[in-house]
Structures are given as C-alpha cells and as structure tokens.
Design a binder for these strands. Structure first.
Lengths: 346, 346
DNA sequence: AACACCGTACAGAGCGCTCTCCCGCCGGCC
DNA sequence: GGCCGGCGGGAGAGCGCTCTGTACGGTGTT
C-alpha cells in the first residue's frame, strides 16, 4: 500500500503468479487457466492496477494515440495558435470533424490529440511529435490548398490521412467529397424552381474544393444556356460572404438565385438580402453548402448541399487506423457523394 | 542508416561521447563543454534524432500531456460520444475554451487530448487514462451542475482544474466568472435605456451559472422596483431560446427588454422577435451573454455580457500546470469579471 | 512402458531514456 | 609541490512492460 502506483510486479505477487501471466491476462492473449485468470482479475481489483502506458509503448512502439491537426498554410511564425484555433472552430465544420473522429476512436479507447499548424514552426512541431512516437499517425484537415504539411508528412513516411485531396498530389490516403457534383445539384435545383439569373458566391479559389463546386455549378448552367454566371469570391466566413454578395448585388442587381460555397456565407447572404428588403426565397433563392448546424439556425432554414462530414471524418480515422496497423499500405482515396437538402431558402 | 529510428546510443556513437552526455545536451542541463555541445548537436542533425517520449516518460513519470475533457452528466451508456461532441461544439463556447487552452499549451510544446465524458463508462475511461499516466492532469468543462466527474477526480487525487465552480464543493482548483455581476450589468443597462417591462430567458436552472445570472438580474431589478420579473427557462441552445421566448411572449406580450443567458439563445430570440414583426431594439431590447462569435454574426449585432472564456481557459491550463509541477498544492479559485459590450440590440 | 506432443506458466532479456554515482583533470591555495 | 575543490564526462542501474525461449506436467500414440 505505498503511494506509488501498483505495477505488474505487485499484482503478480498479490496473485501468486508471475509477471508474464498477469500481462497475458491483462492483454487477453494466449491460453491462461480460467481459475488463474480469475485470481489475477481479483488481484488487479484489489491493488487498483492500471498498466503504465509509457512502459507498454516503449516495447510495443505504439502510442495508441493519433493526432488531429488543423492545418493552415501560414508562414507568420508569431501568429498565436490560439487565435487560429478560435477561427477554425467558428465554422461548425471542425466541430463535425471532431465529432466524426471521436465517434470512431472512442469505442477503441483512443482519444485524439488536437494540434494546430499555422506556421513552419508549428509544422515542425507536428513532425517532431509524431517522430517522437507520441502519436502513431495524423489526421490532417487543411484550410489551404497549398498547405505544405501533407508533403512533409509523406516525405517523413509518417502515417497520415487527409481531408480533401491536396492541390499537388501526395502519396497519402484521403477522403473527399464530389464537390463538382454538389455544384451541379445546386444549379439544377435553382433552375428547377425557375431562377433566371443565377449567381454564386464561391469559396477561396485557392482551395480546390471551391473551384470544383464552382465548376460543377457553372458547367451545369452553361449546358442549360447560361453562358455567363456572375461570380464573387468569398473566404468561407460570414463577413466575406456578406461582402461578396454586396459586390454581386452592385453589379447584378437582378440576381434571383445564389449558390453559396458554404452555409456560413449563405447565412450572411440571407441576412444582407433581408436587410435590403428582398424576400428569401421569393425574390432571391439561396443555397448553401455543408448542411452544418447553421443551416437550421438560419431564418428561414437553409436549403443546402449536404456534405457528410462526420462520416467522412470517421472514414479518415478508419483509414489511418489501417495504415498504422499495417493492414493497408497503398494510399486510398474515398470520395463521398453530396446530397441536396431542400428547406426553405430555395 | 537502418530503418529503425535513431536512439540516444546512435547519436552518442556518432558524436563520440557517452549516452549521458547526449542526454544532458538534449535536456540542456548542467555544464557541458560548448565544443562538445556543438559536436552533439551536429550528430543529432546528421542522424535525425528525436527522443523517444515513451522511454522518457517511463523514467520521468510525466506524459507532458494534459486531457481536455468536456463532461456531461449523462448516464446513457449507449449514447454515441460523437454526437455529444457535435452538440458541444455547436456552441462557440467550446471553441473558445480550446483556443485559450491551446494558447497556453502550444508555446510549451504541449497539446491537449480531447475527451468527452457523457456516461459512467466514459468517466471511468477518463480516470483510467490519467491513472495509466497517458496524461498528467485534466481540464474539465462540465455542462451539468451534477456532473460526478470532478468528485471522482478529486477522490483519485488526480490533478484537475474545473471550469466553473461545481454544485457541491470539491477540493479542486477552478476558474469561474462572477455570473451574478453579469446579471446585474444586464439589468442596469436595460433599466438605463428605459425598459419598463424586462424579462429573462434563463439557462438551465440545474446549472449554477444560470442561477447566478438570474439572481443577479432579478435582485438588481427588485432593488429598482421591479418585484416580479417574468422568467422562462431555456437550455442554452438556439431552439430552446426560441421556445422559451415564445412562452414569455404568450404570457407577457408587452415585454420590452430581454436578458438571455447566452448568445445562442439571444440569437434565437432576435429571430423570433423579427418574425413577429417586433423591431430590435426599438420595440424589444435584447442582451445576450458570453460575447461569442455569434454576437457579431447576429443581425443586428448583439449587445452582450462578455465572458473572457479564452483567458479563463488559459488560466485553467496555468493552474493545472502548477499543480502538476507541484508548484501549487492547495486548490485555488480564480474568478473573472464580466463586462458589458454594448452593440445594437440594447 | 517409452516417447512425442501440446497446453500452461515462468525466467529473463531487453525497449530507450534519465539520473545518480563516481572518476579524472585542472587550477588555486598554503 | 602536495592537497583539495569543483567541473566535465562516463558507467550503469533501473523505470514497467512485452515477448521469446524454456521447463514442466498431462495426454495420446506405438
């Protein structure tokens, strides 16, 4: 009964067996006599034993931990990571990613380490963390297309899975959405409800997903006779959505349908429209993207293109787990399909 | 140049010194000849050495990791933790907590492990995690007043710091806000702008903070002649805020000022009011609580009582760090002051 | 009855690191 | 010139665990 945590040795002594036998019972391997198993379990109970993970990791070479890194492409070494974190979580998107990841990890008694990589220094930190064996692999959610982290990870041969295909190909597994098809869905719905002058507030065009959504939207409209579609570029934030819509309205006051590249911008657009005295959807129809919590919080509730973020995140975790266990060696690419959720704004 | 990660031994051989010397250089302890330091650094560079954390933790008995646990009081063992995570992050509050914690941890090369504890099983999981030495302590953010986790942590003598004082006293450090004063601030502002019939949509009354905010609001009004103030209880979510306001409006159609216990509910209230054709703030003034990102996203921007969540979270991390290092033994309680942020809704 | 064989438990060798000894060397002092 | 103190460096003992190799009964075969 010392104040030191009990070790395998203590349990073994208590149960009158060897260290190895206790280890077998704890790890549930090999054939151990049920009577002895019971004996050991009782000894564990009595001593309040909890296996020391550092010791186990030292020999198994596994941390049984994965890192969830939210990555930017910044170079400002002085930028406070806290601020970056706050910005990231302002979009419900990240909460959904966390939700999906935790959904997969939790039943396996694993928990993600949260990291934010905004500067070169931060990226080195992520690499070091993994190389030190503190985590077995990384789940990377990039906010920029030219994020250097995926390539660094691949070069170091560290297990990693990406959310969204990177701009330049990297030999890592990734999970993505068919964004182009999402754009198509939005275009067809706008057309179907009779829009004559559709426009779009795109996401940052440096992001591949933004370009794809835009391309899908444009192509579909072009094929239906809308050669020129007004486009304003936003930054996925509420403010940028409002600003983009203001520009759109200034040049094309007669738009009657807008496809926003995410819900946050769609929300801003709805607000602006209503302030300007335009009814949504009667005067202008609005379609968002993501189907995040915001879509329901919006007044009226947002019609949007659903991205199954939770499922995608869970799939990332599953792929990473396979890579870590060595069950998968070649990079895989899993693409999910978007779905149109019709509510009231279009 | 094997495919095994280089060890201290490898670096020592490469530099022509002993393992102990390399260790000293790596950890920056004692006086090592600058020339030898240089030698070692170059050897580290050449071998690409990264110290194995498991091995270090094994002897130092430190994981250099802390757990950030979002805790409910649920008992449903089957509830998916992923869903709980999603719900938690729907409120920008948690993003701000993460932001503050990361702000403190990041410069120290530490990163939080994210855990969600909604069931008894989850709570056992948190305890086990700490007892296994995978994390040195826990930062606990409870969503319910009767959360059993703090007491469990205290009983197990595991280092932990709480966000908000628990309902029944627990010998753990905690960080809190003077909620009562926040309620007072809201009441006085409403009175100052000439409200005659103030009301409030409180948070869940099972949460101590909700009660305090309500008490501060009520007491201040009572002292100024408003003996009876209509109260509706909400659940801190957007929907519950709307529902509560509907009840309030049904019974007291003439309210001209509402204090909501958080911004999310205030947002819902503004939406409802506008749908009902009431102008905010001309017909009904609205004050929120938190000053989260929502406050600015609201149309019009929300007047609110600011809670410095990021600072509070950083302080939690600082306190926990002190407890872990043994620099602090007695539990401390740090109370922050709220601040009224006047925008356009009141 | 002798042998092989399998299932069960133990002994012991590390995993990579830290840290306490301990020793050798150099300079200062009487 | 001998002694001592202090500094720079090395040797080695673990930290708590896993896992291989090995011993030891008990059963089945010839």
């Amino acid at each position: 009964m010392s104040n030191q945590a009990p070790t395998l040795e203590d349990v073994a002594r208590e149960a009158g067996v060897s260290r190895a036998t206790v280890s077998r019972v704890v790890n549930g391997v090999r054939n151990v006599d049920p009577a002895i198993q019971e004996l050991v379990h009782r000894a564990i109970e009595r001593t309040g034993y909890a296996p020391n993970r550092a010791a186990r990791s030292l020999v198994t070479r596994r941390a049984e931990t994965i890192a969830l890194v939210v990555s930017g492409a910044g170079d400002a070494p002085e930028e406070a990571r806290g601020a970056f974190a706050a910005r990231a979580f302002a979009d419900p998107f990240f909460g959904r990613v966390v939700s999906g990841v935790v959904g997969f990890l939790s039943p396996r008694s694993m928990h993600p380490v949260l990291m934010f990589a905004e500067s070169a220094e931060d990226r080195r930190e992520v690499l070091t963390y993994l190389r030190q064996g503190r985590a077995d692999g990384a789940l990377v959610v990039s906010t920029h297309a030219d994020d250097p982290l995926p390539a660094l990870l691949a070069d170091a041969k560290l297990p990693a899975v990406l959310f969204a295909r990177p701009a330049r190909p990297v030999p890592l597994s990734c999970v993505d959405l068919d964004h182009r098809d999402g754009g198509r869905l939005a275009a067809e719905h706008l057309l179907a409800r009779g829009c004559r002058r559709p426009a779009t507030v795109a996401g940052p065009l440096a992001v591949a997903a933004s370009q794809e959504r835009l391309a899908g939207f444009r192509d579909t409209l072009a094929r239906r006779g809308h050669a020129h579609v007004p486009v304003a570029e936003g930054g996925f934030t509420l403010d940028s959505g409002i600003a983009a819509m203001e520009r759109l309205l200034a040049e094309h006051p007669d738009v009657d349908g807008v496809f926003a590249a995410n819900d946050l911008m769609a929300q801003g657009i709805c607000q602006l429209l209503q302030e300007r005295g335009r009814r949504v959807p009667e005067d202008v129809a609005v379609i968002g993207f993501d189907d995040s919590g915001i879509a329901l919080a919006c007044r009226p509730p947002l019609t949007t293109v659903r991205q199954p973020v939770e499922q995608m995140a869970a799939e990332m975790a599953r792929l990473l787990d396979e890579h870590i266990r060595g069950a998968r060696t070649a990079p895989a690419s899993v693409v999910f399909d978007p779905e149109l959720i019709v509510r009231e704004t279009a």
